[in-house]
């Protein structure tokens, strides 16, 4: 190995080190610490108590109906909102790709939700649907006194709507990037062969876009799985609309029960790992670098 190669290596490591440390300091170390805490009884309101309790905290979480309800809620919200986002995002991407005029206008308007603080968007939708301030109940075909947040599935529908609104742009832009890599010649050839627009979409567009779609799905699914802001503002978990992140927050911050809360944190981490492995191994999503 020449000195040049050696020094290049050293420089590479040196340049990466600060970023690597900054990233690990607040992820790897805390997750390790969370595992340690989750095996102990730690309740800051009872400073004199404490000690190792083994897997007891995990037992308490996994045997609680609340955990499973909240896990169901989170998975339900993720699956529904990501599915809608995918369809809508694909439609917007196609529209932008085949724009006749006003492409810039679409891109502009689509970027607005991206720029808005999630909490602000959540407040806006909440005020819009609230029976006392909102304009929604004033619209035709909607009961004037409908209490959208008073029932589980109507509350879910507003939450999903807010999430879809906020994150579809990101999905659309990722898909648009995938679309632009497809050679137009393929479409012309298919047209000559008499393929319908739908056939062109399913036979050419979709297969060629599979990598881009999978990457977009992976990111959005994991992102949706951590849903916190919107629910916190809109219902704060009432009407059984709690997500696992809210559940963790409640144990950690409201109850200061760090032991139990850390067990929830670790379980959420494991869920995320499972989802990521599922996408990468089963569906074959590749690192974005590979798809470029």
């Amino acid at each position: 190995m020449s000195d040049r190669v050696k020094s290049e290596r050293r420089l590479g490591w040196l340049l990466c080190a600060p970023a690597a440390i900054a990233m690990l300091a607040v992820t790897a170390y805390p997750i390790g610490y969370a595992i340690v805490l989750s095996l102990q009884q730690v309740d800051l309101r009872f400073p004199d108590e404490g000690g190792w309790v083994g897997l007891q905290n995990y037992g308490a979480v996994l045997s609680s109906g609340l955990w499973w309800t909240d896990l169901f809620n989170t998975v339900f919200l993720s699956v529904i909102s990501v599915s809608i986002e995918l369809c809508l995002g694909m439609a917007i991407a196609l529209v932008m790709h085949r724009a006749i005029f006003g492409r810039g206008l679409v891109r502009t308007s689509v970027l607005i939700p991206y720029g808005i603080v999630t909490v602000v968007a959540a407040f806006s939708w909440q005020f819009a649907f609230a029976p006392d301030t909102g304009f929604v109940n004033h619209l035709p075909f909607i009961a004037d006194d409908k209490d959208w947040f008073g029932e589980r599935f109507s509350a879910f529908s507003v939450i999903i709507m807010a999430e879809v609104w906020k994150t579809t742009p990101f999905m659309a832009l990722l898909l648009l990037a995938g679309l632009t890599t497809i050679d137009d010649g393929l479409y012309d050839a298919a047209k000559v062969d008499g393929a319908s627009a739908w056939q062109r979409f399913t036979r050419i567009t979709l297969p060629l876009m599979k990598p881009a779609i999978l990457v977009a799905l992976l990111f959005r699914t994991l992102d949706a799985f951590r849903i916190f802001d919107t629910i916190f503002i809109m219902t704060n978990g009432a009407q059984d609309t709690q997500s696992v992140s809210i559940l963790g927050y409640q144990q950690l911050i409201s109850r200061l029960n760090l032991g139990l809360g850390s067990a929830v944190s670790v379980l959420i981490f494991i869920c995320v790992l499972v989802i990521a492995v599922f996408f990468v191994r089963v569906l074959g999503a590749r690192q974005p670098e590979g798809s470029r």
Binding site: P131, D132, D145, K146, D147, F149, G150, E151, T235, A238, Q239
Partner: peptide, 14 residues
Amino acid sequence: APNLTTSDEDTSRL
């Protein structure tokens, strides 16, 4: 009230 399950001091006042 129709908003019973989301009511608080403020909504009841209103």
